[in-house]
Every structure is written in structure tokens, then in C-alpha cells.
Design a protein around this nucleic acid. Sequence first.
DNA 1: TTGCCGATTACCT
DNA 2: GGTAATCGGCAAC
Length: 224
Amino acid sequence: MTGERLTRRFYRRGPVTVAKALLGQILVRRLDDGQELTGRIVETEAYLGTQDKASHSYGGRRTQRNESMYLDGGHAYVYFVYGMHWCFNVVTQREGVPSAVLIRALEPLAGLDAMRHHRGRQRLVELCSGPGKLGEALRIDRTVDGVDLTSSGELFVRRARSVASRTVLGPRIGVDYAGGWADKHLRFWIADNPNASRRKKRLHPDWGGAQQKAGNVASNWRDA
DNA sequence: TTGCCGATTACCT
DNA sequence: GGTAATCGGCAAC
């Protein structure tokens, strides 16, 4: 019933590996009243750490806000953006190595009515199809920043029976300020899933709107 | 359907 | 004082 939970060993790998492996897994949020809200992870982004200009830990930056990125793999890194949204990340690699995976979209599975209430919207596809949306739908905020996903009862990732799906990759979203790092194909999603976040065309010679098969990721980026 | 823009605030320079 | 790993509404086409 509860299912197997992803372990420390899973999260301690590199962010690209973890970002791809998280696709298809089940994010579980248990509220104070015991209700379980769950969703299948359908879109992720890898943030490589100190060398990655798009990462909050670029150049070794360490502040009160991003402190959780320095925790051991398997902890939650939750931050506040644009004055109104909470974004949920899974910390990867070892303590002191500030890399993470942003969970960008879910396919809602359980607790749909609660999610609708939290979001103030009815349509399934509008509940968790974006990092800010899923944060609101699952009531993820500063209270779960730094939580250990390998032991917490209120937030963790359940291993799915099967994660067989065609996956694709492309540039990360909203990181245009990161120069060349904005164009690296470090976003991964399950092909044709209606719950993936919707973003329009991106003009860049390496991108051009085409999708690459995730199997080609090794030729672009891989964990050191 | 595409694209622009305001909302709103914690945190950093 | 400026900006941000976003979202949703609205105008124009």
C-alpha cells in the first residue's frame, strides 16, 4: 500500500541522472490531517551546481535562501520566487555539493479535490502543470524546505512500479540570464504528456523547437 | 494561438 | 534598489 520509497542511494547520484530517473516516479505530499496528495512526475530540470550559471549555487554562492542545496542528496530544497510562488527541488549528490533537480510538473493522481481547492481551479491539467502550480496544489512552502525525503512522512517520492515512457529533453525554462547555460538541454519530460508545463517556442539554433530523444542526452550532458 | 505585462515580496548587491 | 528556476489575464492577430 505505502509502496517503496526512493532511497539515499538514488538521490546521491548526479543531477542529470536523477532528473531522468525521477520521471514517472510518484511524489507524495501528506497533509497535517493525514490526507495524501500524489502525482506522477512528468517534467524535471537538472541544476548542476557551482559551475552552472543558472543554478542558485553558481560560483559557490551560499545564502540563507539556498542553504538546503548543500544538504545531502534526498533532501528538499524549496525556494520562493517572483514574490508569490514556491518551487520544489530534490537535492542530489553528497552533502556540501549543491546540485538539485527542479520538479516542474506532475500528473495528478490522488487528492484531486484538495488540489482543486488549493489551486482554485477545476481542470485537471491546470493543477500541477508547472513548478508554481504544483507547489500550490500540494501545499509546498517554506515549512518543508530542508526536509529529508528519505525519512519524512509529509513529503517523499514513491518508486513507481513501472516508469517505461518515452522521454524527451530540451533547454531549461526561465533562465535566459544564464548565458550559454540557458541553452543546455537539461530539462526532461515525458513525451506527449498533457500535464507537462506549456511553454512556447524558443528561438535558438540548437533548439528550433525540435525535441531530442532523451537517449541522446549522453552526447550533450552527463554527470561528471 | 501567441505574446505582452502586471502581480508581489524575499533576498541579495 | 533590482531582480527572480512563474502564472494568468488580456489584447491582437
